[in-house]
């Protein structure tokens, strides 16, 4: 499998079965709209919609576990900094000892945090319901060059292998006495003795691999034949168009005065 990389969670919800392109457009337009929408109310609406889809896909618990781990520290940092230091700060909200927090900054931080939450949820929604192999296949069916498709597929396999190698090199070098803890200069000095063997072992045989690929016809300029077909239907096509149009439409609305 794509090792520990893929977040794909087995399932048979309508999201799992949807065409990868639909999900991709959904993700991108949800994020775009969250950032174009002018006020917290709209962003919360988008976030709730995304969470509803996440629930429908059966991955709510999984998503909350990983999303909160990312979002909580970010949100706290945003609130702490913007609430204290934002240029628009005027109205006091509360004080922690000598440090005063203001409503304007907190509101801006909240809006930013909610938008990021939309981005995170939309991205995870896509990752949880789509197999990486399907993404590559869908892109190639829509015109991505097979050589680029190969690059993605090969990367997904080689990344976990290289991470394993990195772990082993780390253990081996530590056993030889490499200092990996302590002051910044010491840790920085440890980086090259770890990276060099890793890179050398990764680069070995690239020439052989390239030859072996050419011997099999890699890079031939022929029309690609689909490996398998995705379920697509009119509803999905219409949805994709609607979403694609909604984004520039929202931008226009903002320009014209949507507050």
């Amino acid at each position: 499998m794509a090792g520990g990389l893929s977040l794909y969670a087995e399932g048979s919800s309508f999201l799992h079965r949807a065409h990868p392109l639909t999900k991709g457009v959904l993700m991108l337009s949800a994020v775009a709209l969250a950032f174009i929408a002018p006020s917290v109310g709209w962003v919360i609406a988008i976030l709730l919609l995304l969470l509803a889809l996440v629930t429908a896909a059966g991955v709510l618990r999984r998503l909350l576990t990983v999303a909160l781990a990312i979002l909580l520290p970010l949100t706290l940092l945003l609130l702490a900094v913007q609430g204290f230091a934002n240029v628009n700060n005027r109205t006091e909200a509360f004080a922690l000892g000598p440090i005063v927090y203001y409503r304007e900054g907190l509101a801006i931080a909240a809006l930013a945090a909610l938008r990021i939450a939309c981005l995170v949820c939309a991205t995870f929604l896509f990752s949880f319901t789509t197999r990486p192999a399907d993404i590559a296949e869908a892109l190639m069916q829509r015109g991505l060059s097979p050589r680029m498709g190969y690059v993605v597929q090969a990367a997904l396999q080689i990344i976990p292998q290289t991470l394993d190698t990195a772990g082993r090199i780390q253990d081996a070098q530590r056993a030889r006495g490499l200092e990996t803890e302590g002051s910044l200069p010491r840790r920085a000095r440890a980086y090259l003795p770890l990276m060099l063997p890793l890179v050398l072992s990764s680069l070995v045989a690239t020439q052989e691999r390239a030859m072996a690929l050419e011997v099999r016809g890699f890079g031939l300029a022929v029309k690609r034949v689909a490996r398998f077909d995705f379920a697509d239907n009119t509803y999905q096509r219409v949805l994709r168009w609607l979403l694609a149009v909604a984004v520039p439409g929202a931008i226009v609305a903002r320009v014209v005065g949507w507050r």
Partner: peptide
Amino acid sequence: NTLAIVLIPVCIAINWAG
């Protein structure tokens, strides 16, 4: 060329491991 194409996934993996 094919060599350059083969190098890309390796560079991606080096980024990750790095």
